[in-house]
Computed example of a mutant assay.
Amino acid sequence: MPKSSQNFGKLSTLKQPDDTGPTDSAAKASNKAPAKATSLDIAHLAGVSQPTVSRALRNSPLVSEATRKKVQEIARQLNYKVDVNARNLRSRHNNTIALLLCDDLDTSGTLINPFFLTMMGSITQAAAREGYDLLVSFQQLSDNWLADYKDANKADGIIFLGYGDYTDYVNRIQALAEMNAHFITWGPVLAGQPGLFLGCDNAGSGRMAGRHLLNLGRERIAFFGDISAHCPEFHQRYRGFCLAHDEQNIEQDKTLVFRADSNEDDGGHAATALLASKKPFDAVFCASDLIAIGAIRVFHSAGLTVPGDVAVVGFDDISSAAYTTPALTTIKQKTGEAGEELVQSLIKLIAGQTISSRLLPTELIVRESCGAKR
């Protein structure tokens, strides 16, 4: 295992019934243990095939809810106990999902992007509900995680959170796709990507944020974020932001775009650079909440009021966004739904289903930093 890897072990434990099967008078008389029920017995009683019984007992999404409940109830009545070792040998599955959180830690070596932590919590809960163990590994972006996870016996599939430089990441996962590995990435949905991606509607969200600020009468709106090909999610947010300007025949000043990665320090640096440029501005759309929090701190230090002098909108809706001063208006990524969809999509891949990459909707959360009346 990589040196930074941590296995959080089982997240849920299915209590099995007693090993004793049902007894009858003949068995008691002969002092012989009754024959144990088999999956074939359950299949006969449920009126389904034996493979369907196996899928129903492991909560496969390929089986309808009604059939799953029927099979599981018959199994309970028969005190049927799944031989996990035998099942794993047959299916070569171990009911384990690997969650690789790829993120460069801050300079103290301790902090992880809080958005990723929230996502990790929702993925943990979703995996537990489906009876899957979760192997969580924190990976530095510089680590050779591909070599560590080429061994398919470690997990049935992989969920990736965070990717750093997108162009480098795509090159890495291309090898996994060529191995027909089961994996899904939380990130941008683009044409020609290797593997499966699930993400939020970044362009639509940027458009939503831009419309909101423009409708509030703000016209000189800066953008803080990396809009290069290395960070397509931020670029998509910026593209939607520009589209909102086009809709109102307002030109988005390209000189008001300042590069920032998703951390508070970069948000502060971007705000400092904007102030130093002496260019007029009345609002800032930040590609993440962390960038926005750092920017607001610098604006306050420079004597500007938020939202009086400058309105600010962030992105993500991390837990601290509601507790900044002023409380941060932001685009909410629905992490609960995202975690559930990531796990369900990966389970479908493992089961052999063909599914497509797709986008999830977001929501504008209006608080104090934009100046809108609520």
Rank of each mutant, 00 (worst) to 15 (best):
206 G>D: 05
208 M>L: 15
209 A>P: 14
209 A>E: 07
209 A>I: 02
209 A>M: 04
210 G>I: 03
211 R>Y: 11
213 L>P: 04
215 N>M: 07
215 N>Y: 03
218 R>A: 04
219 E>S: 13
220 R>E: 08
220 R>V: 00
220 R>L: 06
221 I>V: 14
222 A>S: 07
222 A>R: 08
223 F>V: 02
224 F>E: 08
224 F>A: 12
227 I>E: 01
228 S>H: 08
228 S>P: 01
230 H>Y: 03
230 H>N: 02
231 C>V: 11
231 C>F: 13
233 E>S: 15
233 E>N: 13
234 F>C: 11
236 Q>W: 03
236 Q>I: 00
236 Q>N: 06
237 R>N: 11
237 R>S: 08
240 G>A: 12
240 G>N: 12
244 A>V: 14
244 A>L: 15
244 A>N: 13
247 E>D: 15
248 Q>Y: 15
251 E>A: 14
252 Q>C: 15
253 D>M: 13
254 K>G: 00
254 K>L: 09
254 K>W: 03
256 L>K: 09
257 V>G: 03
257 V>L: 14
257 V>D: 04
258 F>N: 06
261 D>H: 12
262 S>N: 12
262 S>H: 07
262 S>E: 05
262 S>D: 09
263 N>C: 15
263 N>S: 10
265 D>C: 04
265 D>A: 08
266 D>Y: 06
266 D>G: 08
267 G>E: 03
267 G>N: 06
270 A>T: 07
270 A>I: 06
271 A>V: 02
273 A>E: 11
275 L>A: 06
275 L>D: 01
277 S>N: 05
277 S>I: 02
277 S>T: 04
279 K>L: 12
280 P>D: 05
281 F>K: 05
283 A>M: 07
284 V>D: 01
284 V>I: 14
284 V>L: 04
287 A>C: 13
289 D>K: 02
289 D>G: 04
290 L>Y: 03
291 I>E: 07
292 A>Q: 08
293 I>N: 09
294 G>F: 01
296 I>C: 12
296 I>K: 10
297 R>S: 09
298 V>I: 15
298 V>H: 10
299 F>W: 14
299 F>P: 03
301 S>C: 00
301 S>P: 00
301 S>T: 02
303 G>Y: 01
303 G>C: 05
306 V>A: 11
309 D>A: 09
311 A>T: 05
312 V>F: 12
315 F>V: 09
316 D>A: 07
317 D>W: 00
320 S>H: 10
320 S>Q: 14
322 A>P: 15
323 Y>N: 09
323 Y>M: 14
324 T>E: 11
325 T>W: 11
327 A>E: 08
329 T>D: 07
330 T>Q: 04
331 I>A: 06
332 K>Y: 02
332 K>D: 07
333 Q>K: 14
334 K>R: 09
336 G>C: 03
338 A>D: 01
338 A>I: 15
338 A>W: 04
338 A>L: 15
340 E>W: 02
341 E>H: 10
341 E>F: 05
343 V>H: 02
344 Q>Y: 01
344 Q>H: 08
344 Q>D: 11
344 Q>K: 12
345 S>I: 00
346 L>H: 04
346 L>A: 03
346 L>E: 02
347 I>R: 05
348 K>D: 02
348 K>M: 10
348 K>F: 05
348 K>N: 05
